[in-house]
Nucleic acid binder design. Structure first.
Lengths: 138, 138
DNA sequence: TTCACTGCAAAAAGTTTGCACTGAG
DNA sequence: CTCAGTGCAAACTTTTTGCAGTGAA
């Protein structure tokens, strides 16, 4: 975790207990929580924390590159910033990850076609998760 | 345009002047307007139209499959429902399209990896558009 | 000591809803 | 004639902001 705290300081941010708590939660949760979910969870071990601090902190952590924001509504966050992409269940909103090594090639193709300089991508697939598919058949 | 109107009726929806006006705008605009932009534009030729009618209509057109909603914040809409994907400029929010025939293969790969049944995808790349790139250098 | 951060409350931004009236079919 | 659609206003959800007090460095 020290690595993350150093990253904050390097960018000129202070290491407050609130940030530490939120960062710790983000590092340990396997899911893709919303700000609301982060708030609810973190409130258990840090009862006085406010909603806006959660929002501000998530934005700060994102700026430093420690977490990533997924553009759903509401936004979702994850501390796994490595190369992977998401599938979202249209029925239960469960999110799973998948990997795809050739994404870099697609990105180059996009730059060639559009003349944009690509900095980030959000590749989302939507469908029915295994659980919902089996329920569907019943 | 008759094709679109028939699609509405086929789904049991009535063809009102409001829907006709919005559909006509969506068909002719080359961009990816927000609900607000659709409202502002359509209001010029249909001054009495309300914001909620625009929202309701966009949702209806989407349900019938005549338009597609892009999950940005705010949502954006386009009548081009054919196979293409988007690049968004991080600086000016300009949206451009790109095509990529092997998307189907990636979708199959995703289904294999996750065991989801994929129904839709939203592939978005983010970066700097040609215009903003040249301004950046100055 | 200092100024970035917190907590609170209020506002903003985007979207949805309830309801009485209207007009498409 | 009937009921889906409209316009209006109000509610709701998600996110942002202003500000006085607090505590990390």
């Amino acid at each position: 975790m020290d690595e993350e705290f150093r990253a904050l300081r390097r960018h000129g941010y202070r290491l407050t207990p609130q940030r530490e708590t939120i960062m710790k939660f983000m590092k340990t949760t396997p899911g893709h929580p919303t700000a609301e979910e982060v708030f609810s969870y973190v409130k258990q071990s840090f009862p006085s924390i406010s909603f806006s601090t959660v929002y501000n902190t998530l934005r700060t952590l994102k700026k430093v590159g420690l977490i990533r924001e997924l553009a759903y509504n509401p936004s979702r966050f994850e501390s796994n910033v490595g190369d992977h992409y998401h599938v979202v269940c249209l029925n239960c909103n469960h999110i799973a990850n998948f990997i795809w090594p050739s994404m870099k090639e697609l990105q180059e193709e996009v730059e060639k076609q559009t003349n944009f300089r690509i900095a980030a991508q959000d590749v989302g697939f939507f469908g029915l998760c295994p659980g919902c598919r089996s329920k569907e058949k019943e």
